[in-house]
């Protein structure tokens, strides 16, 4: 299972077909390298270590929700609510931090619990009530953003204790905590998806739910779990974001779900479920973030950045569809 369609590689290495197949298979990686090469050529600042740090810090909150999104999309669903869950958990974290300045762990725990709860509600609706994922999470998207405003009484929560602000800025081994969470999340989940029974169940349910059930897989439980995990990761992402800006704006995370979905899709996952990888998502995410960063450095206006991103999403899927067609 590769990032793009897993066209079977021709047996003979270094033949012409082999190179073509490799090119299609590694299209994402090649585009990524080209992008990096281009920016490095245009700007000295781009390839500095500082800038790499900047890219990673910017990527971290997206990475967590994109990971959750990957699991959901692998089951053939979609989670539109992660942006709102970020807002709710950020507001919850901020409110609790303000009331109990010393209790950092309680703050983080509560924010994560809120995310998990929201995800569990999604999961319950999808797996038990059979509400289509698009609708269930659309409801949560709308309701969640309302709740975020309710918590802050319609306004951002400011004046947070310094301890709260330091969570996301603490460095371990020279890396900020959100970056570490991102790396651990990608590597951990990437391995788990290929090496654990849980990962295999997700692929099986997404690939063919009936077949999975006949093989004894509890599909409802699997479905429930992916939404719960997605909510939990959004909760973590939310509290980290709030800590980084040291406040609780109720609009935090707005529209993030679309970036997360974009990363998963660019990474080669099929919205029909059953196909895609965590590695692909990570690459898709880094590509988006690198583009954002590089275009910022080159002073390309934000509107044009959106245009480029949009084209990239469609192009990635078009190449994918084309390469699948090519082998049938």
């Amino acid at each position: 299972m590769s990032a793009t369609a897993a066209a079977p590689l021709p047996r003979r290495r270094f033949s012409r077909e082999w190179f073509v197949a490799q090119l299609i298979r590694r299209a994402m990686l090649i585009v990524m390298l080209l992008v990096i090469a281009f920016f490095s050529y245009r700007s000295l600042r781009f390839s500095s270590l500082d800038n790499l740090q900047t890219i990673l810090v910017a990527a971290a909150p997206f990475a967590l929700i994109a990971l959750g999104q990957t699991l959901v999309i692998l089951t053939g669903g979609i989670d539109l609510s992660v942006g709102s869950i970020i807002a709710v958990s950020a507001m919850t974290g901020a409110a609790i931090a303000k009331a109990n300045p010393g209790q950092v762990w309680m703050t983080v725990g509560a924010a994560m619990a809120v995310g998990l709860l929201a995800g569990a509600i999604n999961g319950f609706l999808v797996s038990r009530v059979d509400v289509p994922p698009f609708i269930a999470t659309l409801g949560m998207l709308t309701a969640g953003s309302g709740v975020a405003f309710v918590i802050g009484d319609g306004a951002p929560i400011n004046g947070l204790p310094a301890e709260f602000g330091s969570i996301a800025n603490t460095r371990v081994l020279g890396l900020q905590i959100p970056v570490i969470l991102m790396i651990v999340g990608i590597v951990g989940l990437g391995i788990a998806m290929r090496r654990t029974a849980y990962g295999m169940r997700i692929y099986a349910v997404g690939g063919n739910r009936t077949a999975a059930e006949i093989a004894g897989v509890n599909a409802r439980r699997t479905l429930f779990s992916v939404y719960a995990v997605s909510g939990l990761l959004a909760g973590v992402s939310g509290v980290m974001l709030a800590s980084r800006v040291s406040s609780g704006p109720p609009t935090l995370g707005q529209g993030y779900e679309l970036d997360a979905i974009a990363a998963v899709v660019i990474g080669g996952a099929s919205l029909m479920g059953g196909r895609g990888t965590v590695w692909g998502t990570a690459l898709g995410l880094l590509l988006i973030q690198t583009l954002n960063n590089g275009l910022d450095i080159l002073l390309v206006p934000a509107y044009w950045q959106n245009v480029i991103k949009g084209v990239l999403i469609v192009a990635a899927v078009a190449v994918d569809v084309w390469s699948v067609k090519r082998r049938t």
Binding site: Y203, A204, G207, N208, T210, A211, G274
Partner: peptide, 17 residues
């Protein structure tokens, strides 16, 4: 429809049950 997960390998399909 319900026998095998066509996108998974022989090994993974064999493991599933």
């Amino acid at each position: 429809q319900s026998g095998a997960v066509m996108g998974l390998s022989v090994l993974d399909n064999g493991t599933l049950p």
